[in-house]
Nucleic acid binder design. Structure first.
Lengths: 137, 137
DNA sequence: GTTGAATTGTATGCTTTACTAACAAATGTG
DNA sequence: CACATTTGTTAGTAAAGCATACAATTCAAC
């Protein structure tokens, strides 16, 4: 085996770390994490989505999804209501505060993404997303 | 703002998660994590490296580096010795067990990387690493 | 239609990673 | 020499992930 720099997984880990750190800085005032923002985002896009579907979309198991939904519910951003069509499922909805937080978060994401994409041309961004998608799909 | 799929940071997070999960599966028998393996790898490449330098190479702060070195020391894979040139520094070395574990880990990394790179041509791998490097450098 | 399997949510506990703050020892600088 | 910086260390906090177990609901087989 050659050097650590030749390992693709290593670069993904480092890049993720760098993005995560910048994300945290950007969101320190809002007090939201990556997972919390993406969860809010999905619930905003699909009101009434069930926890299990959320987890599948964000690649989290049920227990992890619970933790994050719990925190967002405690903060008053998300509401649980029993689903009409399937009594096992919890349908999730944003509160007014949740919608406001999501709107703020989206503008923070915009500046975070600008920082990230500043080092790429738009073709490179497209290529990068395409390559990364092959990993997580 | 458009959809979550348009956010580069989101794809990096998902790709990292997928790689992390496969890594964990691959290393469940060895009982090593990504961080532990990369730390062993660096110490193997540069015997006598100080903790602070390790942290810089792997983008970890001192406290986090401590945690991981502690675990590897408890397992008997790594040794701390006070540096001769600078009394503040701890020089790190692999034990014989550490070297054996690293050798095994490298062969696990090889199959993990094969799984990861199977979806890319070698040109794409090169491109991906180049793009990711711009993020974490 | 009832029984048994699968799905979904929930609760609990454990592990890893990451960060902050404070302190001590060694080193470097004025 | 006095003071600041670097490095290691400890302790505490928090997020995220996973496994397990259990209850309620739904689905499937018979």
């Amino acid at each position: 085996m050659g050097a650590l720099d030749g390992i693709v997984g290593f670069h993904i880990r480092l890049a993720h770390g760098a993005v995560y750190r910048h994300f945290t800085e950007t969101f320190v005032d809002l007090g939201l994490t990556q997972k919390q923002v993406s969860l809010l985002w999905v619930v905003g896009d699909e009101p009434g989505v069930a926890q299990i579907e959320l987890g599948q979309r964000l690649r989290m198991d049920r227990a992890t999804t619970m933790t994050i939904v719990n925190r967002l519910e405690q903060r008053g951003y998300v509401q649980r209501r029993r689903s009409n069509s399937d009594g096992r499922k919890q349908a999730l909805y944003l509160t007014a505060e949740g919608q406001a937080a999501l709107a703020e978060a989206k503008s923070c994401i915009a500046s975070h993404e600008a920082w990230l994409q500043a080092r790429f041309t738009s073709d490179e961004v497209k290529k990068l997303v395409e390559l990364l998608t092959r990993i997580h799909e």
